[in-house]
Amino acid sequence: MNGGKISFEFRSSLSELDKLHRNLEELGKSLGMSKKTIFQINLAIEEVLSNIILYGYTDKAEHWIKITIWDQNRTLNIRIEDDGIPFNPLEAEVPDLECSLEERQIGGLGCHIMKSLMDDIVYKRLGNKNVLTMKKTIQDT
């Protein structure tokens, strides 16, 4: 894939996560990525996807989410495009990780995980689309 890009399209359904996992396993192996890097990329993408699928749409129609991945000098670039309501995960409220168990609110946890695992994240609203680009340095096996 050196220099090339690969794209996947997913329906707006949580059952598509299996397909995502399979695609990323294959990609990770072909790029010689460590199990840990594959896991972290998979996790960051799932957190974004599940937010879009669960909260991004105001109708019951089927939507498609496009993921494009390319390797740029051992930095993996991941672009996620969806036509859901405008949502910038970088502005999501950071959960209070210090508060007691009883007070602990879980919302925002997924965005926090994604931000912690990725090296760089850029959000843009282009037309009717959310475009999120994440970068992660590839750790070799």
Binding site: L43, S50, I113
Partner: peptide, 20 residues
């Protein structure tokens, strides 16, 4: 276990609260 996301953590959190 090969993988966990915030959805899994949410179940763990809820379980801890209930057991308490």
């Amino acid at each position: 276990l090969d993988y966990i996301s915030s959805a899994g953590l949410r179940v763990i959190n809820k379980t801890t609260k209930q057991l308490k």
